[in-house]
Amino acid sequence: MIEIIKISKSFNSQKVLDDLDLNIDPGKITVIIGQSGGGKSVLLKHIIGLIRPDSGQIIIDGIDITNLNDKKLNEVRKKFGMLFQDAALFDSMTVGENVAFPLNEHKRLSRKEINKIVDDKLNLVGLENVTHKMPSELSGGMRKRAGLARAIALDPKIVLFDEPTTGLDPIMRESIDKLIVATQERTKATFVVISHDIESTFTIAHKVAMLYQGKIVAVGTPDEIRSSNNSFVRRFIKDLRD
Protein backbone atom coordinates (compact mmCIF):
# COMPACT_ATOMS: atom_id res chain seq x y z
CA MET A 1 0.00 0.00 0.00
CA ILE A 2 1.45 3.33 -1.08
CA GLU A 3 -0.24 6.48 0.14
CA ILE A 4 0.78 9.84 -1.19
CA ILE A 5 -0.72 12.60 0.92
CA LYS A 6 -0.72 16.23 -0.13
CA ILE A 7 2.81 16.41 -1.44
CA SER A 8 4.16 19.56 -3.01
CA LYS A 9 7.50 20.04 -4.71
CA SER A 10 9.07 23.03 -6.42
CA PHE A 11 12.37 23.39 -8.23
CA ASN A 12 13.61 26.97 -8.12
CA SER A 13 10.10 28.46 -7.81
CA GLN A 14 8.78 26.14 -10.54
CA LYS A 15 5.95 24.23 -8.91
CA VAL A 16 6.05 20.66 -10.21
CA LEU A 17 3.80 18.86 -7.73
CA ASP A 18 1.03 20.76 -5.99
CA ASP A 19 -0.81 19.17 -3.04
CA LEU A 20 -0.93 15.89 -4.86
CA ASP A 21 -2.93 12.98 -3.37
CA LEU A 22 -2.82 9.42 -4.67
CA ASN A 23 -3.40 5.96 -3.27
CA ILE A 24 -1.74 3.09 -5.04
CA ASP A 25 -3.39 -0.28 -4.46
CA PRO A 26 -1.18 -3.16 -3.46
CA GLY A 27 -0.89 -6.05 -5.87
CA LYS A 28 -2.18 -4.02 -8.81
CA ILE A 29 -0.75 -2.26 -11.83
CA THR A 30 -1.24 1.48 -11.64
CA VAL A 31 -0.36 3.50 -14.71
CA ILE A 32 0.38 7.21 -14.42
CA ILE A 33 -0.11 9.28 -17.53
CA GLY A 34 0.44 12.94 -18.17
CA GLN A 35 2.17 15.54 -20.28
CA SER A 36 5.84 15.46 -20.98
CA GLY A 37 7.56 17.60 -18.33
CA GLY A 38 4.47 17.31 -16.16
CA GLY A 39 6.30 15.80 -13.20
CA LYS A 40 5.68 12.05 -13.61
CA SER A 41 9.33 11.08 -13.10
CA VAL A 42 9.54 13.45 -10.16
CA LEU A 43 6.49 11.79 -8.61
CA LEU A 44 8.00 8.35 -9.10
CA LYS A 45 11.25 9.43 -7.43
CA HIS A 46 9.26 10.71 -4.48
CA ILE A 47 7.76 7.26 -3.99
CA ILE A 48 11.18 5.67 -3.53
CA GLY A 49 12.57 8.54 -1.49
CA LEU A 50 15.07 9.85 -4.02
CA ILE A 51 13.45 13.26 -3.78
CA ARG A 52 11.98 14.58 -0.56
CA PRO A 53 8.81 16.62 -0.86
CA ASP A 54 8.63 20.23 0.31
CA SER A 55 5.51 19.27 2.22
CA GLY A 56 3.23 16.27 2.57
CA GLN A 57 3.79 12.60 3.34
CA ILE A 58 4.54 9.41 1.49
CA ILE A 59 3.63 6.26 3.38
CA ILE A 60 4.90 2.90 2.25
CA ASP A 61 3.28 -0.05 4.02
CA GLY A 62 2.61 2.10 7.06
CA ILE A 63 6.02 3.74 7.23
CA ASP A 64 6.29 7.44 6.56
CA ILE A 65 9.42 7.75 4.44
CA THR A 66 9.53 11.51 4.15
CA ASN A 67 11.73 12.02 7.17
CA LEU A 68 13.57 8.73 7.47
CA ASN A 69 17.33 8.72 7.76
CA ASP A 70 19.41 6.97 5.10
CA LYS A 71 19.81 3.79 7.07
CA LYS A 72 16.11 3.24 7.60
CA LEU A 73 15.23 4.40 4.12
CA ASN A 74 17.55 1.75 2.72
CA GLU A 75 15.59 -0.87 4.65
CA VAL A 76 12.35 0.33 3.07
CA ARG A 77 13.93 0.44 -0.37
CA LYS A 78 14.72 -3.26 -0.21
CA LYS A 79 11.08 -3.80 -1.18
CA PHE A 80 11.55 -1.80 -4.36
CA GLY A 81 12.80 -2.22 -7.86
CA MET A 82 13.00 0.69 -10.24
CA LEU A 83 13.51 1.18 -13.95
CA PHE A 84 14.76 4.65 -14.80
CA GLN A 85 13.66 6.56 -17.84
CA ASP A 86 17.18 6.36 -19.27
CA ALA A 87 17.84 2.95 -17.76
CA ALA A 88 20.71 4.23 -15.58
CA LEU A 89 22.81 1.13 -16.11
CA PHE A 90 26.20 1.24 -14.41
CA ASP A 91 28.50 1.88 -17.32
CA SER A 92 31.56 0.51 -15.56
CA MET A 93 29.95 -2.95 -15.49
CA THR A 94 28.81 -5.40 -18.13
CA VAL A 95 25.11 -5.95 -18.68
CA GLY A 96 25.34 -9.23 -16.78
CA GLU A 97 27.05 -7.57 -13.82
CA ASN A 98 24.40 -4.87 -13.84
CA VAL A 99 21.59 -7.38 -13.51
CA ALA A 100 23.58 -9.37 -10.95
CA PHE A 101 24.32 -6.26 -8.87
CA PRO A 102 21.19 -6.26 -6.64
CA LEU A 103 21.52 -10.02 -6.24
CA ASN A 104 25.14 -9.75 -5.13
CA GLU A 105 24.26 -6.96 -2.75
CA HIS A 106 21.24 -8.44 -1.03
CA LYS A 107 21.17 -12.19 -1.60
CA ARG A 108 23.58 -14.82 -0.46
CA LEU A 109 23.73 -16.93 -3.58
CA SER A 110 26.43 -18.89 -5.34
CA ARG A 111 27.84 -17.51 -8.53
CA LYS A 112 26.09 -20.26 -10.47
CA GLU A 113 22.69 -19.43 -9.05
CA ILE A 114 23.22 -15.75 -9.76
CA ASN A 115 24.29 -16.45 -13.35
CA LYS A 116 21.16 -18.50 -13.82
CA ILE A 117 18.87 -15.75 -12.55
CA VAL A 118 20.68 -13.19 -14.71
CA ASP A 119 20.22 -15.31 -17.84
CA ASP A 120 16.56 -15.92 -17.00
CA LYS A 121 15.80 -12.24 -16.52
CA LEU A 122 17.66 -11.21 -19.65
CA ASN A 123 15.75 -13.85 -21.62
CA LEU A 124 12.49 -12.54 -20.21
CA VAL A 125 13.17 -9.06 -21.62
CA GLY A 126 14.27 -10.54 -24.93
CA LEU A 127 17.98 -9.93 -24.63
CA GLU A 128 20.36 -12.67 -25.66
CA ASN A 129 24.14 -12.80 -25.94
CA VAL A 130 24.62 -9.40 -24.32
CA THR A 131 25.68 -10.60 -20.88
CA HIS A 132 29.28 -9.66 -21.46
CA LYS A 133 28.69 -6.45 -23.36
CA MET A 134 29.11 -3.05 -21.85
CA PRO A 135 26.03 -0.81 -21.69
CA SER A 136 27.66 1.63 -24.11
CA GLU A 137 27.63 -1.10 -26.74
CA LEU A 138 23.83 -1.44 -26.60
CA SER A 139 21.08 0.46 -28.35
CA GLY A 140 18.76 2.68 -26.32
CA GLY A 141 15.97 0.13 -26.41
CA MET A 142 18.28 -2.68 -25.38
CA ARG A 143 19.56 -0.62 -22.49
CA LYS A 144 16.02 0.00 -21.36
CA ARG A 145 15.28 -3.71 -21.40
CA ALA A 146 18.47 -4.48 -19.50
CA GLY A 147 17.38 -1.91 -16.92
CA LEU A 148 14.06 -3.65 -16.72
CA ALA A 149 15.79 -6.98 -16.09
CA ARG A 150 17.80 -5.38 -13.29
CA ALA A 151 14.68 -3.84 -11.74
CA ILE A 152 12.92 -7.19 -11.46
CA ALA A 153 16.00 -9.26 -10.62
CA LEU A 154 15.11 -9.52 -6.94
CA ASP A 155 11.36 -10.01 -7.60
CA PRO A 156 10.62 -6.98 -5.47
CA LYS A 157 7.23 -6.29 -3.88
CA ILE A 158 6.95 -2.87 -5.49
CA VAL A 159 8.32 -2.09 -8.94
CA LEU A 160 8.42 1.40 -10.46
CA PHE A 161 8.73 1.64 -14.24
CA ASP A 162 9.54 4.99 -15.84
CA GLU A 163 8.34 4.60 -19.41
CA PRO A 164 9.32 0.97 -19.99
CA THR A 165 8.21 0.87 -23.61
CA THR A 166 9.21 4.26 -24.95
CA GLY A 167 11.67 3.93 -27.81
CA LEU A 168 10.86 0.32 -28.59
CA ASP A 169 9.45 -1.08 -31.83
CA PRO A 170 5.77 -2.13 -31.76
CA ILE A 171 6.57 -5.82 -31.46
CA MET A 172 8.98 -5.37 -28.61
CA ARG A 173 6.53 -2.98 -26.98
CA GLU A 174 3.85 -5.61 -26.98
CA SER A 175 6.13 -8.27 -25.59
CA ILE A 176 7.27 -5.97 -22.77
CA ASP A 177 3.66 -5.17 -21.95
CA LYS A 178 2.98 -8.88 -21.79
CA LEU A 179 6.03 -9.39 -19.63
CA ILE A 180 4.83 -6.72 -17.19
CA VAL A 181 1.38 -8.24 -16.92
CA ALA A 182 2.73 -11.79 -16.60
CA THR A 183 5.32 -10.87 -13.99
CA GLN A 184 2.72 -8.99 -11.99
CA GLU A 185 0.35 -11.92 -12.08
CA ARG A 186 3.09 -14.30 -11.03
CA THR A 187 4.54 -12.21 -8.19
CA LYS A 188 1.40 -10.33 -7.14
CA ALA A 189 3.62 -7.30 -6.70
CA THR A 190 2.59 -3.66 -6.81
CA PHE A 191 3.53 -2.10 -10.16
CA VAL A 192 3.61 1.61 -10.86
CA VAL A 193 4.14 2.36 -14.53
CA ILE A 194 4.61 5.69 -16.24
CA SER A 195 3.52 5.59 -19.82
CA HIS A 196 2.96 7.77 -22.84
CA ASP A 197 1.43 4.93 -24.76
CA ILE A 198 -2.31 5.04 -24.35
CA GLU A 199 -2.82 1.65 -26.03
CA SER A 200 -0.61 -0.24 -23.69
CA THR A 201 -1.86 1.82 -20.77
CA PHE A 202 -5.34 0.52 -21.30
CA THR A 203 -4.14 -3.06 -21.84
CA ILE A 204 -1.98 -3.40 -18.78
CA ALA A 205 -3.50 -1.07 -16.18
CA HIS A 206 -5.76 -2.05 -13.34
CA LYS A 207 -5.96 1.61 -12.50
CA VAL A 208 -5.01 4.74 -14.38
CA ALA A 209 -4.05 8.07 -12.78
CA MET A 210 -3.85 11.25 -14.77
CA LEU A 211 -1.32 13.90 -13.69
CA TYR A 212 -2.03 17.44 -14.77
CA GLN A 213 -0.59 20.69 -13.46
CA GLY A 214 0.87 19.10 -10.39
CA LYS A 215 -2.27 17.29 -9.35
CA ILE A 216 -3.94 13.95 -10.04
CA VAL A 217 -6.98 15.06 -11.96
CA ALA A 218 -8.51 11.66 -12.59
CA VAL A 219 -8.15 8.17 -11.17
CA GLY A 220 -10.01 5.06 -12.19
CA THR A 221 -10.11 1.83 -14.08
CA PRO A 222 -9.29 2.05 -17.77
CA ASP A 223 -12.97 1.98 -18.56
CA GLU A 224 -13.74 4.83 -16.19
CA ILE A 225 -10.93 6.90 -17.67
CA ARG A 226 -12.07 6.18 -21.19
CA SER A 227 -15.53 7.49 -20.38
CA SER A 228 -14.28 10.37 -18.25
CA ASN A 229 -15.90 13.77 -18.62
CA ASN A 230 -12.77 15.64 -17.71
CA SER A 231 -11.93 17.71 -20.73
CA PHE A 232 -8.24 17.42 -20.33
CA VAL A 233 -8.39 13.64 -20.01
CA ARG A 234 -10.50 13.43 -23.14
CA ARG A 235 -8.12 15.60 -25.08
CA PHE A 236 -5.12 13.71 -23.82
CA ILE A 237 -6.53 10.35 -24.81
CA LYS A 238 -7.56 11.63 -28.16
CA ASP A 239 -4.24 13.33 -28.85
CA LEU A 240 -2.31 10.25 -28.00
CA ARG A 241 -4.50 8.12 -30.23
CA ASP A 242 -3.75 10.23 -33.27
Binding site: L50, R77, D86, A88, D91
Partner: peptide, 21 residues
Protein backbone atom coordinates in the same frame (compact mmCIF):
# COMPACT_ATOMS: atom_id res chain seq x y z
CA UNK B 1 34.43 12.68 -13.99
CA UNK B 2 33.24 9.17 -13.22
CA UNK B 3 31.05 10.10 -10.28
CA UNK B 4 29.86 13.18 -12.12
CA UNK B 5 28.72 11.08 -15.07
CA UNK B 6 27.06 8.64 -12.72
CA UNK B 7 25.27 11.53 -11.09
CA UNK B 8 23.92 13.11 -14.26
CA UNK B 9 22.87 9.77 -15.76
CA UNK B 10 20.99 8.83 -12.57
CA UNK B 11 23.30 5.91 -11.81
CA UNK B 12 23.77 7.25 -8.30
CA UNK B 13 20.00 7.38 -7.88
CA UNK B 14 19.87 3.83 -9.17
CA UNK B 15 22.32 2.76 -6.47
CA UNK B 16 20.06 4.36 -3.90
CA UNK B 17 17.00 2.54 -5.20
CA UNK B 18 18.90 -0.71 -4.73
CA UNK B 19 19.50 0.14 -1.06
CA UNK B 20 23.18 0.71 -1.68
CA UNK B 21 24.46 3.88 -0.13
Amino acid sequence: AELGTMKVTEQIDALNTMSVN
